[in-house]
Nucleic acid binder design. Structure first.
Lengths: 337, 337
DNA sequence: TTTACAATTGGGAACATTCCCATAAATTGG
DNA sequence: CCAATTTATGGGAATGTTCCCAATTGTAAA
């Protein structure tokens, strides 16, 4: 039923050549007669010949494909990172395969198997909030497939990583709130498993300390990043006998959700409660009031990670220095603070 | 240099079996001894064996991969469509490869070559605003690779398509503006090459006609969807001797841009100018004032298209009925009108 | 003229797997 | 007890390509 695929053998037969010569003509090998090459190219064009990458990859043991595993696609953050990575990768002649782990460990493990089965030449990974065991990722190392982490990194693996100065960004965000006269600043933090939660929380605490504001543990709430639970924590905070006058959120989607909840309660942002986020998602500039946030160079994160990966793939070095690239953030002050 | 990959031959040797038997054990073929299968499975696990999909696909002539070609990823529209498609595809055991054509014809052609070279089993396509020649897409048909269009379809190809009732959606949107008392309604339309531009424009005109409002061609502006030019058209409209009191935009990103421009000019939305968009992007509910728009069942579009494609791929029918699925839109009234 | 060398081309192994066609052993029925 | 059938396994072609190692031809140097 399936139509016969045009192969180099078909071209070879029609031109009375060997498949070797056709292959050489097609790949631009120098030692082939100009007239022969011309004939091959013309016939290939005429027959709609397309090289079969499966066969090529099988013999060359290279797929020219990099895999990207991200936890989710719900905000603009990870999509933009993949765009940045894809730009760099395609410029270097690499294709990109993207898998979403959906913030679950099982899916992440399944994703790594897909990547392995599809013989990617390297992978870019940002782990889920659930990931505590890294055996599935260590397989890449064991097989000599380069891996680079970004944003959500794995501490126990000695490979290149791309992150931002989370501590510093959080510090400046909270410091800004204090400069604006806020005294009781709450923090909606992330899951303890993620390094970024820890660092941003540390930045928050350091800013309080520097301004001689005593830390009230009651105001630091770790949550699992499920947006539909934000209202619970916000209402809890606002119902405290001595409620906060500002909230610093681990990320923008959370901050946006906070603003909605606060507004629904009839309170004003920033008059009653100031809100600051982290990442500068696309929606943050559009929401009312517009969100003060710490912007990350999102595309650059993806691009840098891809570049680091490509560097590893092109050199035949097995023991790669574990570079850690820390990119700069920037505080964007808007109406919510 | 490259580490040797574990193959079924390695497993076969260690267990003193033939690669045929190992293959059968691994793929779950019934005619293999339970003890043998057990041994194979255990050793495979121990050695981190991963099946090489390249080789499998080469011999089975199936990659279990569908390709998606979309024009852009800048708004939430196309990403969400791919999410919907991916959900359906992965449930059916298919992987997904996504390519962005970046709204340029050349890139789209390049993308089709990538898809062909990677032997996708089927493709989902939404064309660029530039695409007028469809030869590169007809190659899929010629090779017997199923293709389904969505959103931006190709009229001259007789294949399944998934669209929404653009005419009707536009009609209801403009009718709503008229009900709100607007008399001079402008329309920022899309490129003439796209069917959706035409249909939405027709819906706009029909709504005017039905309400006995004479069409003023001066108020209908086709533009190429480059957001950075929106301010030119909006300012042009507002500088007219008899400026409009409402603008219906071809899509949400355009509408959002219009709102920003109008606000920057010191005019109020909706008091001075009402604005209505199309698609109900994520940002539309967040912007101030929130945007009235025609919502599309985005994930469903992707899911339906994927399902249509999978149906085609699983049956061995070469002449597929050209189904056209038209999904319903819904008018979402918010503050901008 | 002979040798050496460059320019072309062909042959065939290799890549990792599936799957059809044997083959051998074990089991069953008459 | 023998034929027939079932159960389990092996052998090897096929998939479409690259690339190494010849083989052939023509030509310039000796």
């Amino acid at each position: 039923m399936k139509r016969h695929q045009i192969t180099i053998v078909d071209i070879a037969k029609q031109l009375n050549l060997s498949k070797s010569t056709v292959s050489r003509a097609l790949t631009g090998h120098p030692s082939v007669n100009a007239a022969t090459r011309q004939a091959v190219l013309e016939l290939a064009e005429k027959l709609d010949y397309q090289r079969n990458m499966l066969a090529i990859s099988l013999v060359t043991r290279k797929t020219n494909t990099i895999g990207i595993i991200v936890p989710e696609f719900t905000s603009s953050y990870f999509p933009n990172i993949t765009i940045g990575a894809q730009e760099v990768a395609s410029k270097a002649g690499y294709n990109t395969v993207i898998c979403q782990s959906n913030e679950t460990y099982e899916t992440e493990v399944a994703n790594t198997k897909v990547m392995l089965a599809n013989q990617v030449d390297g992978v870019l990974v940002s782990i889920t909030k659930e990931t505590k065991n890294f055996d599935h990722l260590k397989i890449f190392q064991r097989k000599g497939i380069p891996i680079v982490f970004f944003n959500r990194v794995c501490d126990e693996m000695d490979v290149p990583k791309v992150i931002v100065d989370d501590y510093d960004g959080a510090f400046r965000a909270v410091n800004h709130l204090i400069e604006r006269g806020r005294k009781r600043i709450a923090h909606l933090s992330g899951p303890a498993s993620l390094k970024i939660s820890e660092k941003r929380q540390n930045g928050y605490k350091a800013a309080l300390r520097k301004n001689n504001i005593e830390l009230d543990e009651e105001l630091v709430i770790p949550y699992d990043l499920s947006l539909d639970k934000v209202h619970i924590y916000v209402n809890h905070l606002l119902n405290l006998p001595h409620p906060p006058d500002a909230i610093f959120a681990i990320n923008d989607p959370t901050a946006i959700e906070i603003i909605q909840v606060v507004k629904k309660r009839g309170l004003r942002v920033p008059e009653d409660i100031a809100v600051v986020g982290f990442s500068n998602d696309f929606a943050s500039g559009l929401i009312h009031p517009s969100l003060t946030t710490v912007s990350q160079p999102v595309k650059e994160i993806g691009g840098t990670a891809a570049q680091l990966l490509i560097d590893q793939m092109s050199r035949d070095v097995t023991d790669w220095k574990s570079i850690i690239r820390v990119l700069k953030t920037e505080l964007i002050v808007r109406d919510s603070s």
